[in-house]
């Protein structure tokens, strides 16, 4: 049987690259920007994962069926994430919590809500 495995030398090189990327991602965490920070962190993580998959896991020697199986899980995950977030990203902005009669009338019903949206319950509202 023709055994195709990554050579030791390649393994060491890949490991070195992974360590460099690890240092990079820790440094990049200094970026004080939500969106950019996430993108950079995820990009670096993806590159690391790809290095592991392609070299350590010998996918570069694999046939198309195996490659399809490798991709399947990630494609499935993207579907889950994308369509689930299509809901979260397009929901109406968090409720307007007005000081409606209810708020005055049945405060205990709103305890959980008040914990979540304290801004709506300015001090001074009481029965």
């Amino acid at each position: 049987m023709a055994a195709h495995v990554t050579s030791s030398r390649s393994c060491y090189i890949v490991f070195g690259a992974l360590l460099v990327l690890l240092v990079l991602t820790v440094i990049a965490a200094g970026i004080e920007n939500h969106t950019l920070g996430i993108i950079v962190a995820l990009l670096i993580a993806t590159v690391k994962a790809l290095l592991i998959i392609v070299y350590f896991m010998n996918v570069r020697f694999a046939d198309w069926v195996t490659r399809l199986a490798v991709a399947a899980g990630f494609v499935g995950l993207i579907v889950l994430l994308a369509f689930m977030m299509s809901d979260y990203l397009t929901r109406d902005p968090v409720d307007e919590i007005e000081t409606s009669p209810v708020t005055r009338a049945a405060p205990e019903a709103f305890e959980a809500l008040a914990l979540l949206h304290p801004e709506a319950f300015a001090p001074g509202i009481s029965v």
Binding site: S100, A105, A109
Partner: peptide
Amino acid sequence: ITIDVIGKQWMWRIYHPEGKR
């Protein structure tokens, strides 16, 4: 007009803006 509704096991409580419940 906005009417408030609170669901609770197992009843509906309804609060009209005029204060009627």
